[in-house]
């Protein structure tokens, strides 16, 4: 009963509204894409506010604390207060920075996560842009974030920032490979890169059951891609203060934070798309509720991991990637291939 979905109904009525005002179906399509973009950006901003509070709550709960609890019921307005504080801070630019590169970095970092939201299958017929190379697009776009880290590190004209930026590049480029290889297992099973098709093929069985190894590799590589603990060497405060973020303050610094949570949501959403069956679930709730629920479960897993494990050393990080994750993911691809071949040979 997809037509009962409230979001689809809103979309349809908006389309009718635009069709009445705008000339031609192409203009309506452009307008609808624009609406989707605004919805995605709104989702990112509200989500960041919720996730920052959730992160602090989870951190507190796992350390036998309560987390923020003073401002509003259960500390719900803590992030709002933090945002107001950040917005009213002085926009301070250190003297030695490379003006344009330094100023552009937070914005550039914010772009890839926003672009990734375009292919997230929020529900049946609820994909902002249903590209037939959706997963490939996700991989391609999310790797652009590396440049923003390097820009922030180089532009800051600070030794800690440069070290952090270089670490970001090394880490993100390395972990891109196991990430892609783990996704490849799922792509081999479905024979499609389109996110909606991948979800559709999971109506019977979720791919986490067929590809458990790929799921674990994806989790590890995604945590490294988003520079979250235990892979937050980029901003390892005990070694390099805050890495590329050292010279930023106020809203510019908050942009980095926002981007981190936007990409956290993005990788979690991709995980629920690829492995957890996306919008599939008992039909008493609409599909997008299931999708968001699974995504939040994934986000909780990432937070859980973050507040459990200590940070890796740089050489350990590289060893984990090149010596373990890549061979294991290659073996996974091989076994998946053999499995598919055997399945076909049995006449399945």
């Amino acid at each position: 009963m997809p037509n009962d979905d409230i979001l689809l109904r809103i979309g349809a009525s908006l389309r009718e509204l635009f069709a009445g005002v705008l000339p031609g179906p192409d203009a309506v399509d452009v307008a609808m894409y624009f609406v989707a973009l605004i919805a995605c950006v709104a989702l990112i901003f509200t989500n960041a506010v919720i996730l920052i509070l959730a992160e602090r709550k989870v951190a507190g709960f796992m350390q036998s604390r309560l987390g923020p609890h003073r401002l509003g019921p259960y500390g719900m307005f803590q992030t709002v207060a933090d945002v107001i504080k950040l917005l009213t801070k002085e926009d301070y630019r250190p003297q030695g920075v490379d003006k344009w590169v330094w100023a552009m970095a937070p914005v550039v970092l914010f772009v890839p996560p926003v672009m990734v939201y375009a292919v997230l299958p929020f529900g049946k017929n609820l994909v902002p842009v249903d590209l037939n190379i959706g997963i490939f697009y996700f991989v391609a776009v999310s790797s652009v974030a590396t440049i923003a880290f390097l820009m922030a590190g180089w532009g800051s004209n600070n030794k800690y920032s440069v070290i952090g930026g270089m670490r970001a590049v090394a880490q993100m480029v390395s972990y891109e490979i196991p990430l892609v290889f783990s996704i490849l297992g799922v792509v081999m099973l479905t024979g499609s890169l389109q996110t909606s098709v991948i979800v559709e093929k999971q109506s019977g069985i979720w791919f986490i059951l067929l590809q458990p190894v790929a799921f674990v590799i994806y989790l590890i590589a995604a945590a490294a891609e988003t520079n979250r603990m235990p892979f937050d060497l980029v901003e390892g405060e005990s070694e390099i203060i805050a890495g590329p973020f050292t010279e930023y303050s106020g809203m510019r610094w908050a942009m980095f934070f926002l981007a981190e949570y936007a990409s956290l949501f993005a990788v979690s959403a991709i995980a629920s798309t690829l492995f957890l069956g996306g919008w599939h679930g008992p039909s008493f709730l609409p599909g997008w509720v299931w999708f968001l629920g699974k995504t939040y479960v994934m986000i909780f897993v990432f937070m859980w991991v973050r507040w459990t494990f200590p940070r890796l050393r740089v050489d350990q990080l590289m060893a984990l990637c090149w010596k373990y994750l890549i061979p294991v993911s290659l073996a996974n691809i091989l076994i998946t291939g053999i499995g598919i071949f055997a399945y076909r040979a049995m006449g399945g």
Binding site: V58, M62, H69, W304
Partner: peptide, 17 residues
Amino acid sequence: GLGITLREFFRKKATER
């Protein structure tokens, strides 16, 4: 480690308001 943190997550908290 994950088990310890998850157990702590659901336990009574030490913080007194």
